[in-house]
Design a protein around this nucleic acid. Sequence first.
DNA 1: CGCTAGATGAGACTGAATCGCAACTAGACG
DNA 2: CGTCTAGTTGCGATTCAGTCTCATCTAGCG
Lengths: 149, 149
Amino acid sequence: MQQPNPVLSALGDAGKRLTIARRAVAEAITEQAGHFTAEDVLAASRLRRRAVARATVFRSLDLLVDLGLVERVDLPSGDHAYVACEPDAHHHHVVCSACGRSVEVGELGLRPILERIESSTGFAIDSHRLELFGLCPECRATAASKRSA
Amino acid sequence: MQQPNPVLSALGDAGKRLTIARRAVAEAITEQAGHFTAEDVLAASRLRRRAVARATVFRSLDLLVDLGLVERVDLPSGDHAYVACEPDAHHHHVVCSACGRSVEVGELGLRPILERIESSTGFAIDSHRLELFGLCPECRATAASKRSA
DNA sequence: CGCTAGATGAGACTGAATCGCAACTAGACG
DNA sequence: CGTCTAGTTGCGATTCAGTCTCATCTAGCG
């Protein structure tokens, strides 16, 4: 297992050191199916051979957010979570409210809407945040079978 | 000054008691230009003759959120804030990233986009959250004049 | 006026997130 | 391959928003 881990190579590209702690965080992140909290990463690192200090997890996460490899989302519950995502392209996340799995969706024609808002309010909109919550196909199926039981 | 305060009358309609603490919170909220944090309300209540306990501020805020008189927004900074808003109609908020002032915008044709996402991802989207950040007209003007100076 | 469910205040408590600082190490350089 | 040092890390203390408990209080009704 060399390291096809995109998080690590991106760190290298950014001129950051590839420390043991960062490898551990990167691994913990890439094995998460959907969104995860800082605490999840912390717990995952502890299950592996290398535990990472809480402060370091936060520092690494901040770094990854800066690099655009990870994004912060605020769950409807108010909790803070993160999702791994492709850098560069502007996109949004659809988060399953049952299992937490998340998928990215592309830019999806929001632009004309933003322009409409800009002209009607006079605001110069420079950032937005669209978070979508619902049930993923699997959880819909589960919910449906439970209901019929 | 009787009480044309919409927050208070809505509380009454919902069968809730109009206590002194709630009046204080309602006043603090209605005098906020834009978004505000729980701490802001707390501070505002202290400046007036009637200080409200921290726990009560949170309880009142939760209540107002339930009644749809106030909405929670998560600032890009990660802070939790609230915005007063009209109940009932589905809408979104545009928040000025400089002064915090916020205005509501209506439903704005997001529906077709949501449908597109549902069919492409298989998710059943049941809630979404769109928060827009940018400069309000006043702050744009201020920024522009500063830049030319 | 008196009653009672609902509301409040005070402050202890929780848990996430941050900070400061000494110790460590990745990676550059000779 | 050894040395050097800025970037990192770990640890523990700390902060701070938000919650909880419970005794006390009161809005609003009859």
